[in-house]
Amino acid sequence: MEKIVPKVFVLILNWNGQKDTIECLESVSKIEYSNYEAIIIDNGSIDDSVAVLKEKFPKIKLLETGANLGFSGGNNVGIEYALSHDADYVFLLNNDTIVDSQVLSTLVEAGDKNSNVGVLGSKIYFYNQPNKVWFGGGKWLDDEAKFDHVNYGKIDELNCEVPVQKTDFVCGCAFFMKAEAIRKIGTLEDKFFLMWEECDWCYRAKRAGYTCLLVSTSKVWHKISASFSGGSRSPHYEYFWWRNRFLWIERNAPSALAAIQFYAFAFRGLYREMRSYWSPQTTDRQRLGKKAALEGIKDYFLRRFGNCPEWVIWAAGQK
């Protein structure tokens, strides 16, 4: 009897990032797996991304959201499409990544062997330093109220690692979801818009009885923070990191007491950040980042979710 090969949908979200998306799709086209379909989701791009991508990849399905729905909202459009087309697995893949040709076969093998898994993640390396680990698993730090990347910055030691291991969360830029789990617990939470939504989904999955696994033999290379205006640690990044950190605590702290403790740790971290606001060593750009962090926390308490204020985008573009 011929073995049934699980159907995988690879979802690549584009927002004014055609150059990265093209490179990503070119690597995806070299994947050695017999039953997968790549889907482009254009998230309301205002450049010529749609026309360029349609011309360059005419055989790939392109879904247009018509507006910037963020990472969560944009990917949810693709997830719903995949589920309606009999997906067994859904792979959320950042457009600023490239993948190994075995990326899907290793993930599917691990997923099929572990019936209680809800989501699996690839081992992720720095794009410009191919042997340097960016994400080798995730760990929640109770005493800092944040997540940490395991083995961040280390040179790869694959032969010394367990090929498949549990992780507190899977990084959203290479997020391999079991369709069965999505149908049970739902799609990503739209309120996050950008950042922390994958951590939220992992914890929802765990509460539903699923595990989260890192597959070290599945390899992805990431350009890091291309989704953020101004790059890593920009005001754009700081706004979402702080607002959504508080939202994550609200939704996932195991008890009211733990939530109070986590909020206290988060505010302590914010206080350390803000102490340096008037320091002569602090640049104008760094001050804008701290202002954006405060804006994010204010919006959390005012229950303003979704996209960030326009001035944060403007601030992210300042040098």
Rank of each mutant, 00 (worst) to 15 (best):
residue 244 N to Q: 14
residue 213 L to V: 08
residue 241 W to E: 14
residue 130 P to G: 12
residue 54 K to I: 04
residue 186 G to D: 06
residue 156 D to Q: 07
residue 9 F to T: 00
residue 217 T to I: 07
residue 169 F to P: 00
residue 62 L to M: 12
residue 9 F to M: 03
residue 223 K to Y: 01
residue 80 E to A: 10
residue 148 D to S: 08
residue 12 I to V: 15
residue 144 E to F: 08
residue 220 V to L: 11
residue 48 D to G: 15
residue 158 L to G: 10
residue 231 G to T: 05
residue 221 W to V: 05
residue 291 K to I: 11
residue 56 K to S: 03
residue 1 M to V: 12
residue 116 N to Q: 09
residue 291 K to P: 02
residue 100 D to Q: 05
residue 258 A to V: 08
residue 60 I to M: 05
residue 52 V to F: 03
residue 101 S to Q: 08
residue 302 L to V: 07
residue 51 A to V: 14
residue 89 Y to F: 15
residue 5 V to A: 08
residue 270 L to C: 00
residue 286 Q to D: 15
residue 149 H to A: 15
residue 141 L to A: 11
residue 297 I to T: 04
residue 289 G to T: 02
residue 237 Y to G: 00
residue 220 V to F: 02
residue 301 F to Q: 08
residue 208 A to Y: 02
residue 45 S to H: 05
residue 307 N to Y: 09
residue 32 E to N: 11
residue 260 I to S: 09
residue 226 A to Y: 13
residue 96 D to C: 11
residue 72 S to H: 04
residue 33 Y to E: 11
residue 272 R to F: 15
residue 145 A to H: 04
residue 96 D to P: 10
residue 36 Y to P: 00
residue 274 M to R: 07
residue 268 R to E: 09
residue 65 T to P: 00
residue 235 P to T: 00
residue 133 V to F: 02
residue 285 R to L: 06
residue 1 M to N: 13
residue 186 G to C: 06
residue 246 F to N: 00
residue 71 F to A: 11
residue 253 A to R: 01
residue 303 R to G: 01
residue 300 Y to P: 00
residue 295 E to I: 11
residue 100 D to C: 07
residue 183 R to Q: 15
residue 161 E to K: 11
residue 225 S to F: 06
residue 35 N to Q: 13
residue 219 K to R: 14
residue 93 L to G: 15
residue 122 S to W: 00
residue 127 Y to A: 08
residue 240 F to T: 03
residue 304 R to F: 06
residue 283 T to C: 15
residue 144 E to M: 12
residue 185 I to M: 14
residue 267 F to A: 11
residue 89 Y to T: 07
residue 95 N to I: 11
residue 87 A to D: 07
residue 273 E to P: 04
residue 58 P to Q: 07
residue 56 K to V: 03
residue 188 L to I: 02
residue 272 R to M: 14
residue 102 Q to R: 11
residue 52 V to A: 05
residue 239 Y to N: 03
residue 177 M to H: 04
residue 211 T to R: 12
residue 264 A to S: 15
residue 41 I to N: 00
residue 316 A to H: 02
residue 7 K to M: 12
residue 81 Y to E: 10
residue 5 V to H: 05
residue 180 E to A: 09
residue 230 G to P: 00
residue 54 K to P: 01
residue 48 D to A: 08
residue 145 A to P: 07
residue 99 V to M: 06
residue 104 L to F: 08
residue 292 A to C: 01
residue 301 F to I: 06
residue 179 A to L: 04
residue 9 F to Y: 13
residue 143 D to Q: 09
residue 306 G to M: 10
residue 262 F to E: 04
residue 39 I to P: 03
residue 105 S to H: 15
residue 237 Y to M: 04
residue 224 I to E: 13
residue 46 I to A: 10
residue 117 V to G: 07
residue 261 Q to K: 13
residue 167 T to E: 04
residue 245 R to G: 04
residue 305 F to E: 10
residue 239 Y to F: 09
residue 190 D to R: 13
residue 319 K to F: 09
residue 220 V to K: 00
residue 10 V to C: 13
residue 289 G to E: 06
residue 9 F to V: 02
residue 213 L to C: 05
residue 79 I to Y: 05
residue 78 G to M: 05
residue 210 Y to Q: 05
residue 16 N to G: 12
residue 143 D to E: 10
residue 156 D to N: 15
residue 217 T to S: 09
residue 147 F to N: 05
residue 280 P to C: 08
residue 176 F to R: 10
residue 132 K to M: 13
residue 153 G to M: 05
residue 276 S to V: 15
residue 239 Y to M: 08
residue 7 K to R: 14
residue 169 F to V: 10
residue 32 E to V: 09
residue 199 C to G: 01
residue 38 A to K: 00
